[in-house]
């Protein structure tokens, strides 16, 4: 693996939010309100919550696609508001089953296009592509047009595209949604591998078993607000994480 770009000094948080909030124009309610947390290198943080709880909006703010209405945040020491371009250089974003490839381009062309947009020179991009192709076993379909891919092939290609520039932080929005069991397992294995490499991973999911298994800490969102924060063990109630989260979010209503 290539060296991680924009490393965060040891002990310092690589993703932080302080009172982060987002209210969309012409909307009467806050999509996210007073969100504060920190994530550290070499850790996996799970973002949990029901549909509409504010998970995607939070990830969009952290990837600078949305401008926070209030509060502040930083990725690898770069402010979301003041240095959005530097933040984007430090993050790899994956929008799970919802984001798409350019169907008329091959897997290699899709990935190399993003390599160039992320500032990699052509040779660097080719080298990194070869590395990721081996990692995700993409050799057999690397030069096929993306329109012919199965869901699993598509997902591997999307992940490779998201991390082609070797970012220090991964923001993954429901990366395993709609995938079969074995592809899901391989994605979780990849996330654990990235953790070992010292990356900071923040991902949202509805798969509580997987979250419990691989996450070091959890953020539970409810109606845009942070309902709870802690390790999976700390949030577990009556032996079940689901019961614990239900109790927490239920008590807020």
């Amino acid at each position: 693996m290539q060296k991680t770009r924009q490393p965060t000094p040891p002990g310092e948080s690589s993703v932080s939010a302080e009172g982060l909030g987002k209210k969309f124009p012409r909307s009467h309610h806050w999509a996210v309100k007073e969100l504060s947390f920190s994530c550290y290198p070499g850790t996996i943080t799970g973002l949990l919550g029901e549909n509409g709880a504010g998970k995607t909006t939070s990830l969009r703010m952290l990837s600078t696609m949305l401008i926070p209405t209030e509060g502040s945040g930083a990725v690898c020491g770069h402010s979301l508001r003041e240095a959005p371009a530097r933040v984007r250089q430090s993050v790899g974003v994956l929008f799970g089953g919802t984001s798409s490839l350019y169907d008329r381009l091959s897997a290699a062309e899709n990935i190399l296009y993003f390599a160039r947009l992320n500032g990699l020179e052509p040779q660097e991009g080719e080298a990194r592509l070869a590395e990721l192709s081996n990692l995700f076993e993409m050799g057999s379909f690397l030069h096929r047009r993306a329109g012919t891919f199965s869901t699993g092939m598509r997902q591997r290609c999307l992940i490779a595209r998201a991390i082609i520039h070797d970012p220090a932080v991964l923001l993954l929005d429901e990366p395993a949604t709609g995938l079969d069991f074995s592809t899901r397992r391989s994605i979780y294995a990849f996330i654990l591998q990235q953790k070992e490499l010292g990356k900071t991973i923040l991902f949202s999911s509805h798969d509580l078993n997987a979250v419990e298994e691989i996450c070091d800490s959890l953020l539970v969102l409810h109606e845009g607000r942070l309902a709870a924060q802690g390790s999976p063990a700390a949030l577990r109630k009556k032996g079940s994480l689901e019961t614990g989260i239900r109790e927490l979010t239920g008590s807020m209503q």
Binding site: R60, S63, T64, M65, A85, R88, Q89, V91, V93, L94, F95, T98, S99, S100, L101, Y102, D103, F114, L117, N118, G119, L158, R161, A162, H165
Partner: peptide, 18 residues
């Protein structure tokens, strides 16, 4: 429509360039 705009905007490339 293809849902490829978000990944494109999340790259480090300046939007004016894109």
């Amino acid at each position: 429509e293809r849902l490829s705009l978000e990944p494109l905007l999340s790259t480090a490339a300046p939007r004016s360039g894109i």
